[in-house]
Design a binder for these strands. Sequence first.
RNA 1: CGGGGCGUCGAAUACCGGCAGUACGCAUGGUUUGGGACCAUGUAGACUGGGUUCAAUUCCCAGCGCCCCGACCA
Length: 409
Amino acid sequence: MKYSSFFLRTTRDAKEFDSINATLLIKGGFIDQVMSGVYTILPIGLRVLNNIERIVREEMDHLGSELLMPSLSPVELWETTGRTGVDVLFEARGANDASRKRNDGRYILNSTHEEVVTPLAKKNRLSYKDFPFAVYQIQTKFRNEERAKSGLMRGREFRMKDLYSFHTSEEDLLAFYEKAKVAYMNVFTRMGLGQDTKITKASGGDFTTGFSHEFQTICESGEDIIYINKETGEAFNKEVAPAEGDFTQHNASEVGNIFPLNTKFSKAFDYTYTDEQGKQQIVYMGCYGIGTSRLMGVIVEKFHDEKGIIWPKSIAPFTVYLASLNTDDEEIRKQADDVYQELTKAGIETLYDDRNVAPGAKFSDADLLGIPYRVVVSKKTGNQVELKERTQDSSLLLDISSCIDRVKS
RNA sequence: CGGGGCGUCGAAUACCGGCAGUACGCAUGGUUUGGGACCAUGUAGACUGGGUUCAAUUCCCAGCGCCCCGACCA
């Protein structure tokens, strides 16, 4: 991708926002605020989000089948489960519904999808032979947070992966629940968050009288407080923290949350299956969420320095930032074009800064954007290139082929 | 949802009851090119509605929006 034709604009003098992720993502042109808690994901930001969601997909495909449910649903479904009173729900109606005297103009902008997925499953999974099964989606969710804040950490519209599992017994549900924990940790580990992400006991909230489990990433700007038992390593959300024991306290941000729903929604929708004896039995369900856009914010909070973002290689928007200096020199321009071709041919995703701007502007953009490798072509580099990692201060002068080998290794 | 603050060129800010300023960006020309270069010229701005006043961007009221603190966060 050539910088000059990419829809990307960084700013030098953006003001400081209430969180590091908001400041760096806005300065770097990853996101643009449309209103409180609502952001456009700009092209370079979308590359990151897509990478995050690709990893989530790869892990979730082991658990269930991907589908896509709608953002809009009829309010009647929510009346069935009694969740219309939840105050984060956005209600929507057609602009002309009132004047047309229609009374079917009430919709919910879905904040989660139990109300959609349970009737769906009930349509075609009715025999014990059909169980267990699970479906998931990655989709935009709406929650009317009373106070949106901290950039991507707490928006009113955000991206989420939500998976729903269906079982013939509580034991089977719990077995799947443990498999989901493993898959979740794989996701966070692949993004560099494995060490600092704790499976945390939390309240079951509206869903269950028992515990749910949150995946909490220890993070200064996190909105939650968790306690970790020094002896056992067990983690607890503040809301369920036990009084006994020796604990360390941490700020943390919730990147995932899983609930054993048991029969809450199957009862509401009267979802039963036929067992081997021909009898009707109630279905057991679980739900499992990962906030993918929030993950993007948390990763920035975890991985940055005074110069900008430091993306983990697995989700970086590009692998290489290619900067050609001395762009008015025809020969160097041509050499940089060739290096760009070579990198691209080698399958390395490259942002080629071909702009006619001062070298410092290119270096600071490379740092701010957090791309893992920086490759420089200039009159100093001769017929070689200079390779520098984002995390290191020193650079190496290399032939293009050994540069490619290093980047790919 | 309680409390507070703020709305000024594209973004950031300043001053002011009487011609709205700065540096950034953007445009044009020239000089530059290893850590956000420089010169010249140009470009563009007072959230909306009402009130007070000879005169309102400035003071008052309302609305809308944004931000911060707290509560909330299935």
